[in-house]
């Protein structure tokens, strides 16, 4: 064996892994990108053009709206929760149980989560009926739970715990000396937050919010189980495009829509990485 060949042998050990990921991760991803530029077996921009269709744009906008709303609500409430936890004892039961619960709840989504809210606030949900019987209030209304508002609420359920998980380390990184130094230099509580804690935490907060945005934007199962009619958001429009042969006169629209999603997620995740790089330099 020549030296060059011998040096290649160790790399051969990676062939099964790389082969597997090529088939089940890379080819699918690449085929989404390529497929977006194909219509009726030939290269075409008609699917990309269809992305400019009013229906698609409105759906994309609603998706962005839903993701942004649930991300902002989740980020604010999650940050408050993280702060409530971090101001407790670092080795306390409260902190341990909240972080464990958040680890679990951040993964909680999909059909079961949708059903949990149907059992709570659906037409005959437990809370809905209690509202009707006890308070005489109709919480169900005209079925808001199954619209964008409902999705926002339901998404918040996994967004808050995710925020706690990703934001807690940044809060932990805040040193008590900074607060005390600011205090002894004459800063009021408000000034401390305005000049020290705020600027220090802002990048991490925004970064976490972006992550929550991507999380909501990519979510499909919860919405699919909750919304059975119509396609108010992009993932559901992809479902529609996948299950019906032709949508908006295109047979490959699902690919273009998926590409649309990839672009949004990549943009958001890039911003996230840039922001995190900034804080990780400070909070060592």
């Amino acid at each position: 064996m020549s030296r060059g060949v011998r040096r290649l042998v160790p790399v051969l050990g990676l062939v099964p892994f790389l082969g597997y990921l090529t088939i089940f991760l890379l080819i699918p991803t690449v085929s989404v990108v390529v497929g977006a530029f194909v219509e009726k077996d030939r290269a075409s921009l008609s699917n990309i053009r269809a992305l400019g269709d009013e229906v698609v744009l409105r759906t994309l906008w609603r998706s962005i709206e839903l993701s942004a709303e649930s991300a902002i609500i989740g980020a604010v409430l999650g940050a408050l929760l993280a702060y409530a936890v971090v101001t407790g004892r670092p080795d306390g039961t409260l902190r341990r149980s909240v972080t464990s619960a958040c680890g679990v709840l951040a993964q909680f989504g999909g059909v079961t989560l949708a059903f949990a809210f149907i059992a709570t606030l659906g037409f005959s949900g437990v809370v809905t009926e209690a509202g009707r019987d006890v308070l005489g209030v109709d919480l169900f209304g005209s079925g808001w739970l199954f619209g964008l508002k409902g999705l926002t609420l339901v998404y918040t359920y996994f967004q808050i715990p995710l925020m706690v998980i990703v934001f807690l380390p940044s809060l932990d990184g805040m040193r008590s000396q900074w607060r005390e130094a600011a205090e002894s230099l004459g800063a009021s509580t408000w000034q401390f937050w305005r000049y020290v804690a705020g600027p220090l935490l802002l990048p991490a907060f925004l970064g976490s919010t972006l992550l929550l945005f991507a999380n909501a934007f990519a979510a499909y199962a919860t919405a699919a189980a909750l919304v059975s009619q119509g396609s108010p958001i992009l993932p559901l429009l992809i479902r529609n495009a996948l299950t019906s042969e032709i949508v908006l006169g295109q047979s490959h629209l699902a690919f273009a829509l998926a590409l649309d999603m990839i672009v949004v997620v990549v943009v958001v995740m890039t911003m996230y990485a840039l922001l995190l790089r900034r804080t990780s330099r400070w909070l060592r």
């Binding site: 040193r175 000396q177 130094a181 002894s184 004459g186 220090l200």
Partner: peptide
């Protein structure tokens, strides 16, 4: 504490990490 007008130096890591040395000094 913030009205006592005392200058304090801590064990370590008390500089505000998002400010330059000059900005730290100017803070008070």
């Amino acid at each position: 504490a913030n009205k006592r007008d005392m200058g304090m130096v801590f064990q370590a890591y008390s500089l505000f990490p998002h400010m330059t040395a000059q900005q730290n000094v100017e803070f008070g």
